[in-house]
Design a protein around this nucleic acid. Structure first.
Lengths: 195, 195, 195, 195
DNA sequence: TATGAATGAGCCTTCATTCAT
DNA sequence: TATGAATGAAGGCTCATTCAT
């Protein structure tokens, strides 16, 4: 990795939580300057403009979330365990695995009326997230852990929606408790299709 | 209503969808000038500063959502019908009843890391929304429509979370279809407690 | 006095210390609104614009100072006593007889490079002040209290200058002590011409 | 000196007479833009805000006065000559050595009721000015030019006050003549202690 | 690659003033 | 006479971006 590429990565890492917390519009390039201790001009060596940095950072935050989720999933054995792991890793919205909270929710809600490119990126991540859940269950069905009558694709959507809704509830409540109710409901639904 | 109060209301009504769509930080007072056809100074006759306008508009948007929901609920008879009406009225995130989409999601996600006052307002609305659902079911139980063994408070939370999560999914997908999957799941859970 | 004239006087009295303390440029019409509890429009019923109010208030402050000085002088008998009374009444710049301090100094220093009309008003007050001192001494000479060889006009100038310089020194020092040194020097000069 | 420091000095030099003439409140950043031919943003590269520029300019003006006085004093030999030089250099208030007139008087009178920091700066300059006079006389006493019975500290205060009062008188009168009366009085007082 | 001075549009807010009621 | 809604210029300041070094 060249020096330039190193700096670029450092900028992305530093900028990611700032954009995820403050939002795109409220984050100024000077915030990134402060965080990176880089000069104004230097930022523009690595990113043509704020928009390019935004796009990169939106991707980065969502990929970071994805990789943290995958990391957790790897430790789980059965499909059921994997589903629980997925829920658990997202069960602390106040202390989220990605600083600032779920980037899909953050960027999606900011961009849906103003920024088509970001909206599309978020949609892809949303679809991908459901795919992950869906894939876990599919494997569970194939391996005889779950009933093959389960409409698992619909459940993946439901599970994703519930978790995201839980993020909103918990983050504005400033505590994680309500996620346990959501978890319980999901577990109950899951167990209904266990063999 | 005095002329001043009339103008103030007009400003709120004009500003509400703008803030709900663009977000607080990205909305400039000049956007409100354009929308109201009022002069810069005139805006400040009715609102001390941007923040006061923001607070008023956040409240307004959430109350607007509430009143639209209540209006719909009034037309439904049984508790089951009311729950369905609640779901239905929120089942078109792309063409939402409140311009710009769910203000709890919009303002909550923008404010949770930066604006304690707005976050508190959103939390109250979130709690209140669940209370509405909860009250409907409670009445249904009391009137023998649902089993009194239903943990309806937890279900209200789950239902609210699922609907909010559905907003994210549909708005970034640019279509309302996935809300039907969510509706189906909710209906299935509801019917399980019907007498 | 008509109701209108009464209001006008009330405005002047309220505005006088504000302009004398904050200065002309730094005082906004809204400061006067607040102080008078009058509406924006009402102020403009009594004064065509800020400038007219300024002119009136500058005059008022200097006349107020003059009348307070005269009031004090009346109580003194001999010319010497009158000179001492004049010094004494101006010997507490930190707790001045006119709220905000000497208006000649305040308005003179603000206006000398920017406002010819105010400058002229101040000059007249400055000349008049020296005339007062001068008149006291003249009467003292005529009545055999002071030597007729005293160049009393020059002394009046010196005495006025010293007192004004003392205002600056004491007001920025936040205490009145240095005025006593000035008083002593003036007394020493005065006594030299006593018969 | 870096380019930035050069620009900063240029701004200070350009801004100094403007603030000294118009006053702090009445001087807009746009006045400084015009004078420096610099853009709005550029001003804020070198000064965090107006206040920082004000503080710097207040200091600059008073130091400029000080250095011009010192320069003059250096040319004088005896203590008497130095005192005369001091008086003379301040004897043309209408054509002052520092553009806009005595900054102690200008900033002191504007700030004494509104700006504690500036007031303190002015007080220090006022005290320092008297110290200069005082030091001159002390040296004159030590070298046998003046009587050691002279209360020279009190005289320094008196002399400073008289000169400052003279500034007011002359500037509003739009001519320097009265300073000669003040000078004569001071000379008379000085000569009384000459050996 | 990195710097930081320079830019000017745009932001929120205040100002003096006008005018219909 | 008194009100307060309305105005738009101007205020201080921040922003994304450019560019010479």
């Amino acid at each position: 990795m060249t020096k330039g590429e190193e700096t670029r990565q450092m900028i992305i890492k530093s900028a990611a939580p700032i954009f995820n917390k403050k939002g795109i519009a409220a984050t100024a390039m000077s915030d990134i300057m402060d965080a990176t201790k880089l000069s104004k001009g230097s930022l523009y060596v690595h990113f043509e403009n704020k928009d390019e940095l935004v796009m990169t950072v939106v991707d980065y935050n969502m990929q970071l979330l994805g990789s943290k989720v995958f990391e957790t999933l790897r430790k789980a054995r059965s499909a059921r365990e994997k589903l629980i792991a997925y829920i658990d890793v997202l069960s602390t919205p106040v202390n989220p695995i990605v600083e600032g909270g779920c980037p899909m929710l953050n960027f999606g809600m900011e961009a849906d009326d103003t920024n088509e490119v970001v909206t599309k990126k978020v949609n892809e991540a949303v679809v991908f997230s459901q795919q992950i859940i869906s894939d876990i269950i599919k494997k569970g069905i194939d391996e005889g852990e779950f009933s093959n009558e389960w409409n698992y694709k619909d459940f993946a959507l439901v599970m994703f929606a519930m978790i995201e809704g839980g993020q909103l509830i918990c983050r504005v409540a400033r505590n994680n408790r309500k996620m346990q109710v959501i978890k319980a409901n999901l577990l109950e639904q899951i167990s209904r299709w266990e063999l």
